[in-house]
């Protein structure tokens, strides 16, 4: 998302040493450019928060309105897979931090390595998510004409009053929220793959690694959104 100078294809590594070719003409110095890119990224993250905020708002409204059905529907999600994915994402955030450190230290191979691991972790998340979605299809938990919801007993065998329509609404929100999150994960994986290639080609130096930093910020945000999604979707019925 940052206005990174990735298209400067003709620039050779030699010139990198001479002056900073990454400095765009309209900035007065590299520090100004870095500050601008960083502020721009933070603002973009704000828009992302507002974007997901709309869905969180819808979720909260309906959770309060249809508490029982939401609790019952929530129990049908796989906490195991959700927790595994949470762990995967937390680890991937660590590897992103390490990648930024490596870029700062100018360790090119290490940087590429961490970026690749991050992408792999991201893909692991998506694959697990895919299995979860498949399970939902198999159990007719996908909203639509085939939707069925018959699980109206909690773990203690106590009957929960459930309206299938409301359970369907829960799954609508589940798919909308996790789907939008997964889309952001896919974008993030693509972003890091491109950055890994550029890093391999030596585009970044200790003096210039803003794209890595900004992509890292993006990845952390996507992580944090999951950190909220996991308890709200998977764990809400576990408090009693």
């Amino acid at each position: 998302m940052s206005d990174s100078p990735v298209t400067a294809g003709s620039v050779t590594t030699m010139e990198h040493e001479a002056h900073n070719p990454a400095l765009l003409h309209h900035f007065s110095d590299a520090q100004q450019q870095k500050n601008a890119a960083s502020l721009g990224m933070w603002l973009f993250l704000v828009t992302e928060i507002m974007f997901f905020g709309g869905m969180f708002c819808a979720y909260l409204v309906y959770r309060v309105a249809h508490f029982n059905s939401f609790a019952a529907a929530s129990q049908q999600l796989s906490i195991g897979m959700g927790a595994f994915n949470t762990a995967v994402l937390i680890v991937s955030s660590v590897t992103v931090v390490l990648a930024v450190k490596a870029a700062e230290a100018g360790k090119r191979k290490l940087l590429v390595g961490y970026l690749v691991v991050t992408v792999l972790l991201g893909m692991t998340f998506l694959v697990v998510k895919g299995f979860e979605y498949r399970e939902k299809f198999e159990r007719h938990h996908v909203p639509g004409p085939t939707f069925k919801f018959t699980d109206t007993f909690d773990d203690n065998g106590k009957q929960i009053p459930v309206n299938p329509k409301e359970a369907e609404l829960f799954f609508s929100l589940y798919f909308a929220m996790t789907g939008m999150h997964a889309l952001h994960m896919i974008i993030g994986c693509g972003l890091f793959s491109v950055l890994a290639i550029f890093a391999w080609k030596g585009h970044y130096s200790p003096g210039y690694f803003t794209p890595i930093e900004n992509a890292g910020l993006y990845w952390h945000l996507v992580d944090i959104i999951w950190i909220y999604l996991f308890p709200l979707l998977y764990l809400i019925s576990r408090h009693s």
Binding site: H66, N68, S69, Q159, I160, P161, V162, N163, E166
Partner: peptide, 10 residues
Amino acid sequence: TAKIVSGFKP
């Protein structure tokens, strides 16, 4: 089932 009266089953 939205609002069950206390003491009754859904």
